[in-house]
Amino acid sequence: MKRLMKLTVLSLIAIGFAAGCNEKEKTEQTAAAPKVAEAPSTVVVPDQVKGKWKAVQIQVADKNAHLKKVYTLKIGSDFHLPGSDLTLNVETFFPHFVMEGTTLTSQSNDLVNPAAQLVIREKGKEIYKGWLFSLYPTTHAFQHPQYGFTLVDYLPAS
């Protein structure tokens, strides 16, 4: 009886070890598997939006100093963030952001889902290129150790 119990315990240990090896192999296979490239998105500024917006306002939160300040960034122009090595550039503003397949565009010139495409460079090197959404500030939010960025307002061209 003792021998049977011992054999059962050893069998369970062996099964557990084998299962653990399989999990390790699966993890290694997953890590080694080629990544599927996402289809690049195309940004299309419709005529009804072109030239209608001159700037956006972005709130910058300095996490270290516990301060928040709003800056006005002209669309298409570089803005050096004071006291930092960061340069911000709003490449595109869409008042009614929509995604149609791989195309990013604005469905209208009405402020339905405002979004700004922001490029952030640190010491000249691009560290972020993505979208800020005023209605959904935490969606795809850029994670920087010191600064947080939020789209808060938009200024029409005239």
Rank of each mutant, 00 (worst) to 15 (best):
V44D: 13
Q59N: 09
E38S: 13
K63M: 09
L10H: 04
G130D: 01
V119R: 12
G51T: 07
F79H: 10
K24Y: 13
K68I: 06
L132D: 05
Q29P: 00
N113E: 14
Y128I: 04
L118A: 09
K125A: 07
G124H: 10
W53S: 02
A32K: 10
K52E: 14
L67M: 12
R121G: 05
V45A: 01
I58T: 02
A37H: 06
W131S: 08
H144Q: 03
L12V: 07
K26G: 00
Q143H: 15
K26H: 12
K63P: 00
D78E: 08
L135W: 06
V119F: 01
M99N: 14
H66Q: 14
T150R: 04
Q146P: 08
G148C: 06
T8A: 14
K68M: 13
H80V: 09
A61R: 15
K68F: 08
D78R: 00
V9F: 07
S11I: 04
E23Q: 15
G130Q: 04
L132T: 05
L118D: 11
L67C: 02
V112R: 11
L135D: 14
V43K: 07
A39C: 12
V45F: 04
D62F: 00
L118G: 06
V36A: 08
P114D: 06
A18C: 10
P34S: 14
K63G: 03
L111H: 08
T27N: 11
T150L: 03
T92M: 06
K24V: 13
K68G: 11
L73C: 09
L10E: 11
K123I: 11
